[in-house]
């Protein structure tokens, strides 16, 4: 059951990451916008991260058959996804992400040491959670300023991914509980919500760069 859920999540993550990454890259090639370049890196990283974890599960299922995915593969995949989430947050001007106050800087780093010395994977999950919540807040703020409806769906998607990471993090504390399946289901819904507004962009009218 765990393998099935993980495979569905990772395949959807791979497809959504690849689609948005490709679209951003096409946009970057046609306009030269640095924002689209950062989004390309972000979503290609997310795509690669999900793909690595999916490959790990498939290798385990058909080749290794030890009953559990290799921990380093999962950590590598989550680490690469975290890079993707960093670039989404970075696109929103990372300046306000790191507060100037020395007190808040120390508080910001504190949880990473407290929680995650046991597993590197936990460190990545906690960083991903912070980055996703930050990006979701920025997107909601942007919606309040511009009233673009697509931003609600993206903000919802990012928030659900953050909640999924949060619950996934808790499932380390309470293993074998329903939290794990809840986390994966929420992440799947989050990825779909992220893709909805992007799928509505009419690419057919654009004459693409011939070098692409």
């Amino acid at each position: 059951m765990e393998f099935l859920f993980e495979n569905i999540l990772n395949l959807i993550g791979f497809v959504v990451g690849l689609s948005i990454g490709l679209m951003s890259y096409i946009g970057f090639k046609n306009t030269g916008s640095p924002t689209l370049f950062r989004l390309s890196i972000a979503f290609f990283s997310i795509c690669v991260g999900f793909f690595i974890i999916w490959t790990g599960y498939m290798a385990e299922d058909f080749l290794i058959k030890s009953g559990q995915i290799e921990r380093w593969i999962q950590t590598l995949g989550i680490g690469i996804q975290t890079i993707g989430y960093f670039f989404i947050a970075f696109s929103h001007s990372i300046k306000s992400f790191f507060p100037k106050s020395r007190y808040f800087r120390s508080v910001g780093i504190f949880p990473l040491f407290l929680v995650s010395l046991i597993h590197i994977e936990n460190i990545f999950r906690s960083i991903s959670f912070i980055l996703l919540v930050y990006a979701a807040i920025e997107t909601i703020m942007s919606y309040l300023e511009n009233k673009k409806k697509g931003a609600i769906s993206v903000a919802l998607g990012l928030s659900l991914l953050a909640l999924g990471e949060f619950l996934g993090w808790y499932s380390f504390v309470f293993p074998e509980s329903i939290l794990y399946y809840l986390s994966i289901s929420i992440k799947i819904v989050g990825l779909i919500a992220l893709f909805i507004p992007v799928s509505k962009i009419p690419l057919t009218k654009i004459k693409f760069d011939e070098d692409l």
């Binding site: 946009g27 924002t35 997107t139 909601i140 697509g150 931003a151 993206v154 962009i201 690419l203 654009i206």
Partner: peptide
């Protein structure tokens, strides 16, 4: 077109 795409992410 890509302005609309990027605005979905709350970006310019």
């Amino acid at each position: 077109t890509f302005s609309k795409f990027v605005e979905n992410f709350g970006l310019a």
